[in-house]
Design a protein around this nucleic acid. Structure first.
Length: 924
DNA sequence: ATCCTCCCCTAC
DNA sequence: TAAGGTAGGGGAGGAT
């Protein structure tokens, strides 16, 4: 029995498909004419079928659209007669395949541009022999004067999946490794008020017609290298090479990417059908048992295996299976000790500090505390184990020897003398990450981005919709990711995010694990506390000193004890975690709360001027980021790292910060700003007050918090005002009398003290294209713009033909337990989606005035439409429609219609909470 | 009680 | 040589 049956009893009218269906059939005709014109433009690719392998520009999704529009065929899985479109292939693949039809994506784009099918042989990725690779690059090398903002900031524009990326190059055996590749400057936007105007002279290497061309690129390398922060190019140089900076930027970039995808999606996932077909073709379902997860939720955690290493190994198959580390250091060469270095003193200070901390935390005498540090294996000698270059990522073979991420190269070499190193490939990480995210996004957008190589995915709806079992889904998905990226990944499944995450750890490397309900209790018992997310070095050591190393052991402590030992929140979290519980829902939409920039490397000033000059530059950097994210802020914090008086002047790590004291000082402004002058002034003022010898500075950071969106009008009428939390809703309803006009109802409460946080900061959606404007739809990337429109429309049309057989009832509704309101559980029926909101209002009015009893299928359609508005952030019109519905149902005053209103409201608010974390303010 | 500032911790 | 960033959660303790 359908859940809705009780609420909306069938009165016999439903057999006709419902009132709404009949009505919209007419509207649909208007659209069908338009949709048709967008279908096929030319027949250039008549009879041509392609299969896209790996990362390409345009992306596979974009190529799919292009092929469809120009009469060609796109295959998700490779067929024998397909042209293989690729920009690069891992050597392993090259060895095992025929290359006669491996063609560069430019074949497609150039053919479209010249409106005829060009000879594919001119676009072969490999010609004649496998070793003769065609160089195909159009690339900009920058010289030493280039502006920093052009090179270090990632660009996450939704307009193209990978807009500023360099053309993929085939370096092959040519050793061009130490040349820095940069984005094409012609695509970089000038940043207004940028205090560092671009003075870069660029060298454009035009595409060569020759094979095996040899260009002496070394002559373009920077002639001088910025050594310390006193050098004007230092920030740029440093950020370009900083792994942590890249990790952080990429993380933020993909959180935004998910925001953008959700914002621009119609939440139809045609790729599900393809996947389902290949699963059915490949797997015998009898081999799989039906897995049951806690609370019937299926949360997937997905994580690339030793990400940086895997990406680096795509071009170095010869190194597979060996102990590998990604690091700046070449490794192996001993270096004479810098004068003044006193590692033992410096490391001693670190140890002392840690000991003191633990002594306070545990109440033990300091000499009883035993602990390890990562400097334990580093000596003061100028031998080959002295490198303090950090390992960003290491292969599983290296891990087997005890090497860990973050370890110093010297210590690692001591553990594994034959450890091989590979350089960073920051562009590669971004490519692979995009492919990863876009692959998942084909199937669902219930994604919480964690970092560039890791995310949580709520698969509950997806799996129910596809009606496939989770094992085969996991296998096919991982296969697809490996095929597209050339990198392995692991997935874990559980009933909540903690379980999924722990399952991934178990699955690694290159595996999958399903932590089903029946396994949780035993599984969690053995888990080490230090493996729990949120439990780092300090917490783990503290817990160990309390006598607990595993979750099972910690289960003996009461909630009160844990809270007392670790604080209220942390204690409660740990109490849950060690039992495998995790009440925190996935968050699909993130809102930025701070912007900061800091440099704790290479800070060596000779005088105050240099320090002030650096503060100006760093302020400019923060200002530039604030512009990028479109925020202003009220609170400015300066962070200073100052050499501890006992620490040696020369640090153990070259240009490192050494043993320091940290100072944080902040100012609160009366009004939010992103003015570079104000930031600079405040920051310099704070710095001067500290009275620190510039020679002793080792690190500087600037952070801006209490953010507001630029252009968010604090006055009434702003969209932000519709969004408010429950608390405020209550308060306001008490105060406000019933409002009758739509416009008046826009006045919504807002917490006065809290900054506006309803919209994602730093949305990088492109300007609306003329097409998008004409349709009145949100801006979309090329991919979503074309495919979604087509799909929405064509599915809409199809839907009409089968209306009577398939009323818009969703089986999911009855399957999903009601107590999980965090996510939008229902796949959206297609009926109304795509219609202008005012048309829908007319339909609503007609429906409400029809005198009929409401039908479930019509209600579902309305709900789907309104939820789509939430997702598209069309809150303004949503607000109008909701209030319209409220007023109309009240006027009718019949119980069944009032129930409809309650039901719709509940569904819309669920969507609001999922997307914004807040409820829509509705007058009652 | 609740806020603010200045930390500390964690994660990637 | 080496590139030790950045955002968010939370706690202690003082101001309101």
């Amino acid at each position: 029995m359908r859940r809705g049956d009780e609420k909306f009893p069938d009165n016999g009218f439903e057999a006709w498909g419902g009132y709404m269906h009949a009505k919209i059939a007419k509207l649909e005709e208007q659209f069908s004419a338009r949709a048709g014109t967008e279908d096929i433009i030319t027949n250039i690719f008549n009879g041509v079928s392609i299969y896209v392998n790996g990362f390409t520009i345009p992306s596979a999704d974009e190529l799919k659209v292009l092929m469809t529009k120009h009469g060609g065929i796109y295959h998700t899985y490779q067929r024998s007669d397909d042209y293989i479109i690729a920009s690069n292939l891992p050597d392993t693949k090259v060895k095992n395949m025929s290359l006669v039809k491996v063609v560069k994506p430019e074949w497609i784009t150039d053919s479209i541009a010249s409106n005829r099918l060009l000879d594919y042989r001119d676009y072969l990725l490999y010609k004649n022999s496998r070793t003769q690779r065609q160089l195909n690059f159009k690339k900009v090398l920058k010289n030493d004067n280039s502006s920093l903002s052009e090179t270090k900031n990632f660009n996450c524009e939704a307009g193209s999946l990978f807009p500023n990326e360099i053309q993929n190059t085939l370096l092959g055996e040519n050793n061009l490794g130490d040349i820095t590749m940069h984005k094409n400057e012609t695509e970089s936007k000038p940043i207004p008020n940028d205090p560092l105007p671009s003075t870069s002279n660029t060298v454009l290497l035009e595409k060569s017609k020759e094979n095996n061309i040899s260009v002496d690129l070394n002559q373009h390398k920077p002639s001088t290298v910025a050594k310390t922060a006193a050098d004007p190019n230092f920030i740029s140089e440093f950020y370009n090479n900083s792994r942590l900076h890249h990790i952080s930027q990429l993380g933020a970039c993909f959180k935004q990417h998910v925001n953008d995808l959700r914002e621009n999606s119609n939440f139809l996932f045609p790729a599900r059908e393809d996947l389902k077909k290949s699963i059915l073709a490949k797997y015998d379902y009898n081999n799989f048992s039906q897995l049951k997860f806690e609370k019937n939720k299926v949360i997937m955690h997905i994580d690339m295996d030793c990400f940086f290493v895997s990406v680096g190994l795509r071009n170095r198959p010869d190194l597979r299976g060996k102990p590998i580390a990604v690091t700046h250091s070449k490794g192996g060469q001993g270096r004479p000790k810098r004068p003044g270095v006193d590692r033992s003193t410096e490391f001693g200070l670190y140890k002392q500090k840690q000991m003191k901390k633990l002594g306070i935390a545990t109440g033990k005498p300091e000499d009883e505390i035993v602990f390890e540090t990562r400097v334990d294996n580093i000596t003061d000698e100028d031998d080959k184990y002295g490198s303090m270059s950090e390992i960003a990522s290491c292969s599983y073979e290296a891990r087997a020897k005890g090497i860990k991420n973050g370890m110093f190269m010297g210590a690692a070499l001591r553990l594994c003398p034959n450890l091989e190193t590979i350089p960073y490939d920051f562009d590669g990480y971004k490519e692979v990450a995009y492919t990863l995210y876009n692959t998942i996004a084909q199937y669902t957008l219930d994604i919480e981005a964690v970092s560039c190589d890791e995310m949580y995915v709520d698969c509950t709806e997806l799996l129910a919709d596809m009606n496939v079992n989770v094992q085969s889904f996991a296998s096919m998905l991982r296969e697809e990711i490996k095929r597209k990226t050339g990198c392995p990944c692991s997935t874990g499944f559980g009933g909540n995010r903690l379980q999924a995450r722990l399952a991934t750890k178990k699955a690694k490397p290159d595996g999958q694990f399903f932590l089903t309900e029946d396994l949780v209790e035993d599984f969690i018992f053995e888990i080490k506390l230090s493996d729990l997310p949120g439990v780092g070095r300090q917490t783990a050591q503290k817990l160990e000193s309390l006598g607990h190393v595993t979750c099972g052991s910690l289960q003996t402590l009461t909630l009160a004890t844990l809270k007392c030992q670790l604080g209220i929140k942390t204690g409660a979290q740990l109490f849950d975690q060690c039992r495998g519980r995790d009440p925190t829902p996935l968050t699909f939409h993130t809102v930025r709360k701070s912007v900061s920039a800091e440099v704790n490397y290479g800070i060596r000033f000779e005088n105050e001027n240099q320090c002030i000059e650096f503060l100006k530059q760093l302020s400019a950097e923060v200002h530039s980021r604030m512009q990028q994210f479109k925020v202003i802020g009220k609170c400015i914090t300066l962070k200073l790292m100052v050499r501890d008086e006992e620490a040696p002047v020369e640090t153990a790590k070259f240009m490192g910060h050494g043993f320091c004291n940290v100072i944080n000082k902040s100012t609160s402004l009366s009004t939010a700003t992103n003015d570079v002058e104000i930031i600079t002034r405040e920051v310099i003022s704070i710095c001067k007050k500290q009275n620190i010898d510039p020679k002793e500075m080792r690190g500087i950071g600037i952070q801006v918090t209490k953010l507001e969106l630029i252009n968010s009008k604090p006055s009434k009428g702003s969209i932000s005002k519709f969004l408010t939390n429950n608390k405020v809703v209550k308060k306001e309803t008490e105060v406000k009398s019933e409002l009758n006009t739509d416009s008046k109802m826009f006045e919504v409460a807002e917490s006065i003290k809290k900054p506006v946080t309803n919209e994602s900061y730093g949305s990088t959606s492109p300007k609306k294209s003329p097409v998008a404007k004409r349709r009145g739809r949100p801006p979309k990337s090329m991919k979503t713009q074309l495919s979604s429109t087509k799909n929405a429309m064509s599915k809409f049309l199809q839907g009409q033909n089968v209306t009577r057989d398939l009323p818009y009832k969703d089986p999911m509704i009855r399957d999903v337990p009601k107590e999980v309101p965090h996510n939008i559980e229902q796949p959206r029926p297609k009926g109304l989606i795509g219609l202008p909101w005012d048309k829908v209002r007319e339909l609503l009015r007609a429906w409400l005035e029809s005198g009929q009893s409401p039908l479930q299928c019509d209600v579902d359609m309305i709900v789907a439409y309104l939820q789509e508005m939430v997702v598209n952030k069309n809150t303004e019109k949503l607000f109008v429609l909701m209030n319209f519905l409220r007023r109309m149902t009240k006027e009718i005053g019949r119980n069944d219609w009032l129930k409809v209103y309650d039901h719709v409201t509940e569904q819309v608010q669920n969507a609001m909470i999922a997307v914004y974390g807040k409820r829509l303010f509705i007058s009652d």
